[in-house]
Design a protein around this nucleic acid. Structure first.
Lengths: 169, 169
DNA sequence: ACTGAAAGAAGCTAACT
DNA sequence: AGTTAGCTTCTTTCAGT
């Protein structure tokens, strides 16, 4: 029992060489993370043990960071997604920003949190039940915060995903 | 061999009742999609066959839509992520917008594509190698397009993810 | 609906090329 | 690095509560 469980990736971020086999593994597992090793090997035209070693290496090197079930929030009664751009107050202290962001990203409504440079300071992607919950989220968790200057909410009408990116700091 | 592979979800979007066991399964598999059924059963304190039936039901009902490996793009030499807000021309025809969006979302740089209502018409989340590739992406695939009025690029400094949302239209 | 047991499949490891 | 082979573990089914 192991199925490529959490190892400790190094901080070495140099892109090592990946051959086409590695790239195929990444592509296949990004599309279907429960592809069996046997199927993977067949698709790559190598022995199962080879596929196994390659995949483990990708996990060990921290290139594949995990496997996650994708959830249809519509069917969970959270059919409304929004992207909220947040602009911070110019004078906001760095550690209060960090504390605030740390709190926001743990909220159950939050799917993703982007720290960005540009017009906004960060973007919050949420999934909730209805429009009033969007408003409630913005009021309760964003606009009343000390560090927040303004927010700008956009309803998400369509959403497409090609890949699942690993979180980073 | 099956491990909950793609079934055909109905279009019934009514949120059916989920008990706490279902919610735990969703939470566990969202965090680690390769949790073995045996471990899942242990965590839920039910028999493996029960955990199995519950999980299958969640997949069959289309609540869990798939399993995906998460990729560290930094280690793949694509250490720069950006979020690009796109505003369309007021006169842009609906089908040309659809065709354009369809093309954009298939580009290998694109991680996610959001159709939104608000200041922007959509948001494109990309991962590329460096700043000049961001520019290249915007120039080649966005700003030169007929339907596009303006774009606004924000570099992503930090990224956090709580969940993987299923794509939707 | 949940359980337990049995059978089949897959993962994992180690020795060899 | 890749392969072959063998052991272990998990998934999956089904008959029985």
């Amino acid at each position: 029992m192991d199925r490529f469980r959490h190892s400790i990736p190094t901080k070495d971020v140099r892109p090592r060489e990946l051959d086409s086999t590695d790239e195929k593994i990444i592509a296949i597992l990004a599309r279907d993370g429960r592809t069996t090793n046997a199927d993977l090997a067949a698709a790559l035209d190598v022995a199962p043990s080879t596929a196994h070693a390659r995949t483990r290496s990708l996990v060990d090197r921290g290139i594949l960071t995990g496997f996650h079930a994708s959830v249809d929030y519509q069917r969970l009664g959270r059919g409304l997604q929004a992207m909220i751009g947040v602009v911070l107050r110019p004078g906001a202290r760095h550690d209060s920003i960090v504390a605030f962001a740390d709190e926001v990203r743990r909220l159950p409504q939050v799917l993703q949190l982007f720290f960005v440079g540009g017009a906004d300071d960060f973007l919050v992607h949420i999934a909730v039940e209805n429009a009033s919950e969007v408003r409630e989220f913005v009021v309760n968790h964003l606009s009343t915060q000390q560090s927040v200057a303004t927010t700008r909410t956009s309803i998400v009408f369509e959403y497409h995903r090609n890949a699942v990116a690993a979180p980073f700091r």
